[in-house]
Amino acid sequence: MRWLVTLVTCCLPIPAMTHPHVFIDTGLEFVVDASGQLTHVRVTWAYDEFYSLLVLEDMKLDQDGDGILSKSEQDHLSGFDAQWDQGYNGDLVVWSESEVLPLSGPLEPKALMEDGRIVTSHLRSVEGGPVPATALSAKAFDETYYTAYDLTRPVTVSGSKTCQIDRVEPDVDGQLAQMQAFLLTLDANYDLEENDIPMVGENFATEIRISCPNT
């Protein structure tokens, strides 16, 4: 997926190229209780090497550059990406029977270093109480596509051994063709701040479908 972001970025008008891009390998754990209801979703983000380096330098961590954090440094890093603005959905949407589930903000944030990359995790509870996990779907995406989320880390269900997980990959070629056609209609003076541009992030996101039989 990273080649796609690079290609799209190169095609965008100059104003859009000033925004940094972040690549995040993502994992999801759907926590289901004994009655087959979804209670929480645990999210894992593994940041790309360059962004990880920027964060460490900004926070003055890993000063010796060995990629190993002390306990105090790890504690200081934990939660750096869990300070969310009001209304931010955590770049994760979960549906139950086509209805968007309200999820809490990040709980139990943790962070560590893994092969030169910052890896964080946080837990999100289903607000209003558990919901049946008979027909769930989820996508991790930034609608602006300035951050690219790839579901390359494990996607699992805990609490039940009977749930089925299916992946629906996006039509990358088709979506890219549509985006390129749109970009060709723009000129170098196109003002992105004054004009609406398509929010394409969801179109390039892998969909996860969870089905847990009633117990």
Rank of each mutant, 00 (worst) to 15 (best):
T44I: 06
D115K: 15
M17E: 05
G128C: 05
P170H: 02
R167T: 02
D64L: 07
R167W: 00
L92V: 09
V126R: 05
R167G: 01
L192I: 04
E202V: 09
A181T: 07
A138I: 02
L38A: 02
A188P: 00
C10N: 12
L69I: 05
L103F: 12
G67Y: 11
A82V: 02
Y145K: 08
I208S: 14
Q164I: 05
K71P: 00
L56G: 00
L151S: 08
G159K: 13
V5I: 13
K161R: 13
S211A: 14
T120A: 13
E99A: 14
V93Y: 11
A34C: 06
R153A: 07
E114T: 08
D173Y: 11
D150E: 11
G201Q: 11
H76W: 04
E49R: 15
F204C: 09
V168T: 13
P106G: 02
D33Y: 10
D142R: 09
R167S: 04
D150A: 06
A177W: 10
F80C: 01
V155G: 14
A135M: 06
E194I: 00
P20Y: 05
A82S: 01
D191L: 01
S96K: 14
E99W: 09
G67T: 05
S78C: 05
T144N: 14
I68D: 06
R153S: 04
I165P: 09
S78H: 10
S211N: 14
C163N: 08
T156I: 06
D75E: 15
D187A: 01
T144M: 12
V155F: 12
L54S: 10
A135I: 00
E207Y: 07
I208C: 12
F23K: 04
T120G: 03
Y149D: 04
V32L: 07
G67P: 08
T156C: 07
H40M: 09
S35C: 10
D196L: 08
R117W: 03
E57Y: 03
Q83M: 12
Q86K: 13
D62Q: 07
E143R: 14
I118M: 02
R209W: 04
C11G: 11
V155T: 12
E29T: 15
E127A: 06
K110Q: 13
L56M: 03
Y149N: 12
E99P: 00
Y149G: 11
P213T: 12
L69K: 13
